[in-house]
Write a protein that binds this DNA or RNA. Structure first.
Length: 226
DNA sequence: GCATTAACCACAG
DNA sequence: CTGTGGTTAATGC
């Protein structure tokens, strides 16, 4: 443990920005930083967990095994909390998390975290905001998945990667076709077909995992109309 | 009926 | 792993 690790961290969460010096030392004393390589499992569904997980850096996929197939719930980019909902009320994880890139994750002791919630209202406030944003995001995703059809969901995912993850229109899909299917609720074959269709129609420039979004306005239309 | 959508299977790079 | 073609089932004109 390193007392200074959180004090001088430049990837602090919005919540942790409200911690004082003494609190940051306590945090540093009760958390641990772990590096994960691409494909490493950060935590697994049904395993016991007594930590709050914070992604300092990197991309993580959050997934759950459904009755039919694997479902990717979302892709999270650090810095972000991951797993407050799983660890707060329950002892076991309700989903798994896997590193997509090389990732740095902080495991924060739950009692320390709860202590901040109890004593630092600014900290708590930021955590609540985070949870609310998450819930709203999930509501939207739920509607999308249920009411849109294949191409709409794929267009959604492409725009998500371009706007939220890479922040440019040329993306390198960090998922296999099979996983991209798990994310968008399509079979791997369908993902393949939809992408080649988009390519043929000039909406994207497709080159394996390298995808360039050429007509984002049209992709948005497809995404909205389903 | 006919068209659309998407899943499943099989096979080829 | 990925792309494609054929087949099949469900759903909506």
């Amino acid at each position: 443990m390193n007392l200074e690790i959180c004090k001088f961290c430049n990837k602090r969460s919005l919540a942790a920005k409200h911690l004082g010096n003494e609190e940051l030392e306590r945090l540093g004393n009760n958390c641990n930083e772990v590096r994960f390589a691409k494909g490493d499992i950060i935590f697994k569904q049904n395993a016991l967990s007594s930590n709050i997980i914070y992604i300092k850096e990197g991309l993580v996929k959050v997934h759950i095994s459904g009755p039919e197939r694997e479902q990717i719930l979302k892709i999270s980019k650090g810095p972000a909390f991951l797993g407050i909902p799983t660890t707060f009320g329950e002892k076991i994880n309700h989903y798994s998390a896997t590193a997509i890139n090389d990732t740095i994750v902080c495991f924060i002791d739950i009692m320390t975290f709860k202590g901040f919630i109890a004593t630092n209202s600014e900290f708590s406030y930021e955590i609540i905001i985070d949870l609310c944003k998450n819930e709203i995001y999930n509501f939207h995703r739920c509607v999308n998945q249920l009411q849109k059809q294949g191409p709409g969901r794929v267009a959604d995912a492409l725009l998500f990667f371009a706007d939220e993850i890479f922040e440019r229109d040329h993306i390198e899909l960090p998922l296999l076709r099979h996983e991209f299917g798990d994310l968008t609720g399509n079979s791997r074959e369908n993902v393949s077909r939809i992408l080649t269709d988009f390519n043929r129609e000039g909406l994207i420039n497709l080159n394996g995992k390298n995808i360039e979004l050429l007509k984002k306005d049209l992709l948005r239309q497809i995404s909205e109309k389903g």
